[in-house]
Design a protein around this nucleic acid. Structure first.
Lengths: 211, 211
DNA sequence: TGTACATCAGTGAACGCGCGTTCACTGATGTAC
DNA sequence: TGTACATCAGTGAACGCGCGTTCACTGATGTAC
């Protein structure tokens, strides 16, 4: 009964081939299913079906792995934002939709999202930091769209960087408040989206009364 | 030579008298000096000069201690915000100042600030959560001021809760971005304040162009 | 095409560590009479 | 005011645990000739 077919794709090989990515995928799975606390080197290796020492051939230490996870998450977020921008470039409520996209990403990848904003995963000052590049990438996606909307007159003219920072602050702030604060424990996604659309609208229109 | 004065205030007593607060103070000190990672039950007790088992007479477990720390921090933040509101109630840039106050608090108490926004320190759903009460308190300080400014016509009329949420989102978002993101690593307080004042101004005035 | 050899990428055992928590205890305090 | 006793708030030892990291190793792969 034992099969003579030699190359069953499932058969474990001594050399994995792409263990680095497999470890990151395992980390993502664990983050999703067991939360941030489950992300120990040993647990991630176990999840990937590999001895924990193997991880050291692909990451210098635990922080290096977590940093890589955060970088991947920033890239995934950037892709989501890019997609939303492409699909809604001409919508009058494009910024609201971007806010909702950001929120949805955070709620759907809550544990990963937390790793994206952790100063202790940054490289020491002066050292090139791939996490910085990744976070700048996501930010740049927003800046590009802000620039478009400034050019076409939908947004006020001004430094697109500064305007992007305000926008990012608003959606990031509300997202983390919803994600971490007891007040919003158990909120429905739909209600959360409603909140973030409202907040973005207030940023667009301003909350001050100009008489 | 041994003193016969019986009540030297420094002499350690078997019964501490106020160990609960002493532990929280020790936790604050550690958070300040060694960062969030130093906040283990054992380290906190050591810092307070007491056996680690003693802590269990005052907190049910480690999370209970950290929750109490977060609650204290929310109360401290509320006090800072109240003070800023009192001192600047009539300033034209009162909201900018509130933003700067929030930012300064976070930068001056970075490790504690991180514990204030951690879903895993919340009580399970359905259980009364003192952390929720504390966070609502700080938020209420903002809401009250928003309400004042809506009544006097400085802010547009509207639901003060919603407007407060937008304001809180903006200042909380930028604060955590500055605190956690590699891009702003090592930024000077003064520059950070400049950023947050700018972001608040954009929220007040709006970023959309109304033709 | 075959072989020797360097290199790569795994394994499993071991190290030392500090953690949260529990337990039986003891010293100090407060209270009833 | 003194005494017996319950209660409170500490102590220190112990438990078991899983962690990050290192090490000598071995199996698999790639390359030079």
């Amino acid at each position: 009964m034992s099969s003579s077919v030699s190359a069953s794709p499932k058969r474990p090989q001594y050399h994995h081939g792409d263990l680095r990515n497999a470890l990151l995928e395992a980390a993502r799975t664990l983050a999703q299913e067991r939360g941030a606390d489950a992300l120990t080197l040993r647990h991630v290796a176990r999840q990937a079906g590999v001895s924990h020492a193997a991880a050291y051939h692909h990451f210098t230490d635990k922080n290096d792995l977590l940093r890589a996870l955060a970088i991947q998450a920033f890239k995934a977020l950037e892709i989501e934002l890019q997609r939303a921008i492409q699909d809604h470039a001409d919508d009058h409520d494009a910024f609201e939709t971007l806010g909702a996209t950001y929120l949805r990403f955070a709620l759907n990848h809550a544990a990963e999202f937390r790793f994206m904003f952790r100063r202790d995963l940054c490289m020491p000052e002066g050292v090139p930091d791939p996490l910085e590049i990744a976070s700048r990438g996501a930010q740049a996606a927003l800046t590009a769209f802000v620039h478009v909307r400034q050019s076409d007159g939908t947004l006020k003219a001004g430094d697109p960087q500064a305007t992007t920072l305000s926008f990012w602050s608003t959606i990031h702030g509300l997202t983390t408040i919803i994600l971490e604060t007891p007040v919003f424990k158990g909120i429905e996604l739909q209600n959360a989206e409603h909140l973030i659309r409202g907040a973005v609208r207030q940023l667009l229109e301003g909350i001050a009364d100009k008489r």
